[in-house]
Amino acid sequence: MRAEKNEDLCLRIGVRQGGCSGMSYIMDFEQKANTRPDDSVIDCDGFRIVCDPKSLLFLYGMQLDYSDALIGGGFSFTNPNATSTCGCGKSFAA
């Protein structure tokens, strides 16, 4: 997806209030030039992931996986900070 946009992008991950369990995950592409000085930055295999400090409190130790399976495919979040998650796996309570 990043290659299709043909831009210098990074992936911003975070959390916000909402979702069935109280907090939901957010992910979006962002220009590398728009990252903030207080963002945590992870470089992995030539790809940059950024996260704001408030979200990092809820995401520290989380494992993000992707599957292209026809059933149950997409991103999956394994978050050790979640006390409960919803059935779709896109929101959680901490």
Rank of each mutant, 00 (worst) to 15 (best):
R36T: 00
S67N: 09
R36G: 02
L64G: 05
F75R: 06
T78A: 02
T78Y: 01
R12E: 15
E7H: 10
C86M: 06
N81A: 11
F77E: 00
G72R: 11
N6L: 07
V50D: 02
G89S: 11
R12I: 06
M27R: 02
M23Q: 07
C20M: 10
L64I: 15
Y25M: 06
D68N: 13
I42D: 11
E7I: 01
F92H: 14
C44I: 14
C10F: 00
L11K: 05
R36K: 14
P80C: 07
D39C: 10
D8R: 13
L64W: 15
M62D: 15
V15T: 12
M27A: 13
F92R: 14
A94C: 15
C88V: 10
A33D: 13
Q31A: 06
G14V: 01
A33K: 09
G19Q: 00
R16K: 08
K5G: 08
G46K: 09
T85C: 05
R2Q: 11
D43P: 02
A94L: 13
M1E: 08
F75Q: 02
G72T: 15
C44Y: 13
L56S: 08
D68E: 13
L64V: 15
D43A: 14
F75K: 06
T78V: 02
R48C: 02
E4A: 09
F29V: 07
S21W: 03
K54A: 12
P37T: 08
L11G: 07
Y60I: 03
N6V: 04
D8P: 04
K90V: 01
E4R: 11
A69L: 04
I13W: 02
P53N: 11
L11P: 10
V41M: 11
T35N: 04
G46T: 09
F29A: 07
L11A: 13
F47Q: 12
F58L: 07
G18L: 01
S84R: 14
F29M: 08
